[in-house]
Write a protein that binds this DNA or RNA. Structure first.
Lengths: 119, 119
DNA sequence: GATGATAGTGTCAGAAAGGATACCGTCTTG
DNA sequence: CAAGACGGTATCCTTTCTGACACTATCATC
């Protein structure tokens, strides 16, 4: 469980990469995280920012991210309910990963861009 | 059957990230990619290297990785069949992403203690 | 003749993820 | 009074992923 001893990638069961992936595995999680890197957002803001995700799914993903300690959830007990989501320190530490993923995506998106519907 | 597997990458800045994630999303894909960073491997080698994955699942994951252009598959038409898998250039370009994931995992694995009963 | 190694494929089945839809309570606005 | 915004829940459903298991073909070996 301590650090993997090889400098090269090690893929034993329970490897660190798998663990990291498991946290951002989810159809919308990385999108959520990305939006939150810009700053705090309310639930409805996220919903509008990510068209195509249903309330239920968004809630689920947020709950999982929260359970994994990647985001913080602040509830304001006021009459029109207000809930703010923001990155935790742990979530912010994920930024390099997201950056690497984004860099890769940006560099290679065109390769398979044709294989998708126009939408 | 290799196209609509990936969700649409049309929208936000997070889409590139989503695209990248979708390629390594799969229970064993990053494990496979890691093993292949060491060099070419045969099917049975991978199978032995990754205990816990079934033949069928391994085949599926390899097929998807191949369909996504991350790995190359070379079939040698000889009597005991021989198939070698190796990273493609695209697959190798994913290395920084895997490295970032591994770095994050190494740094944070202890935080959330996804303790695996690993030797 | 039987068995094993190789690299799969085919079928079945369960789990999990995600989507559709409806509903909740409160308050404000029309 | 009714509708809408807010941040969800609850229920149902479908798709997808993954595992278990059996089966194939060829050749070498026992």
């Amino acid at each position: 469980m301590s650090k993997l001893r090889h400098s090269r990638f090690d893929c034993a069961p329970g490897c660190a990469v798998e663990a990291a992936i498991s946290l951002i595995d989810g159809k919308w999680k990385c999108v959520i995280l990305f939006h939150l890197t810009d700053g705090t957002m309310r639930f409805s803001e996220l919903r509008r920012a990510i068209p195509g995700v249903t309330q239920r799914t968004l809630t689920n993903q947020l709950r999982e991210l929260e359970a994994d300690g990647l985001i913080r959830r602040e509830v304001f007990a006021q009459v029109p309910p207000k809930v703010e989501y923001s990155l935790s320190d742990l979530g912010r530490s994920m930024t390099p990963v997201l950056a690497a993923l984004k860099a890769w995506g940006d560099a290679n998106l065109d390769r398979f861009a044709m294989a998708q519907p126009e939408a």
